[in-house]
């Protein structure tokens, strides 16, 4: 990486989204609607991709219209743009990734109320040029996705001994008395996982 790149606005935007204020632990935003799909890694990945698509493009669209959007209806305009993108993502999933979309059920739709998407549109895209907003959206989507996938990774690994549907805990472990942790498959597992992640992060990074 060159020094110029490190100083660039884009780099700072990416760094802010991925590291300094990574959505779940620091912003507490966007935690809604995401945890229910973390029982399996595959659904979490697809969910992250769908959210990244929505947040990047809603940022792009809203930012390129930002000088035209009348102030008094801007929230409803943002919601309309986001909802359109979410429905498109949902329709595409149903057409091309039917199995995953069946498992994601209503949770793709709930991206509409995801605070990250609205938050980025309102705070970033409304006051920044399209290119930068698009990158900001991408980075935020990836930041969110990284935590979602990390939670899913541990839930699937500990809960069913598999990753992406393939068994990774060898049979000899089970023969020796190892058992899958059923708690991880249930809702409390996700809450506790997030709590432990925050603990780890706070301890490692300090405050």
């Amino acid at each position: 990486m060159t020094g110029a790149w490190k100083k660039s606005e884009t780099y700072r935007a990416i760094r802010a989204a991925l590291y300094d204020s990574n959505p779940i632990s620091k912003q507490i935003l966007g935690i809604c609607s995401s945890l229910a799909v973390t029982v399996k890694l595959s659904t979490a990945i697809v969910m992250s991709l769908a959210l990244t698509f929505v947040v990047a493009f809603s940022n792009l669209v809203i930012s390129s219209m930002r000088n035209q959007i009348p102030r008094n209806i801007r929230i409803i305009v943002e919601v309309a743009v986001i909802a359109t993108l979410v429905i498109m993502a949902d329709e595409f999933l149903k057409a091309f990734l039917y199995d995953v979309s069946k498992q994601l059920s209503v949770f793709v739709g709930l991206i509409i109320t995801n605070c990250i998407v609205m938050g980025r549109a309102e705070t970033f895209a409304m006051s920044n040029p399209p290119g930068k907003s698009f990158v900001d959206g991408l980075a935020n989507g990836i930041g969110y996705g990284s935590i979602l996938c990390a939670v899913a990774f541990f839930r699937e690994l500990l809960g069913s001994g598999k990753l992406l549907g393939f068994q990774v805990i060898p049979d000899s472990f089970y023969a020796a008395g190892y058992q899958n942790m059923g708690l991880m498959l249930l809702a409390p597992g996700a809450f506790i996982m997030i709590g432990l992640f925050t603990w780890l992060e706070n301890t490692l990074l300090g405050d």
């Binding site: 632990s25 409390p188 809450f191 506790i192 709590g195 432990l196 925050t198 992060e201 301890t203």
Partner: peptide, 23 residues
């Protein structure tokens, strides 16, 4: 509460325990 767990962390874990109780 352990320092790193204060605030957000402990709230999530308490929520987890509550979720277990509700189940």
């Amino acid at each position: 509460v352990p320092k790193g767990l204060q605030g957000f962390g402990i709230r999530m874990i308490v929520t987890g325990l509550m979720a277990m109780a509700f189940m």
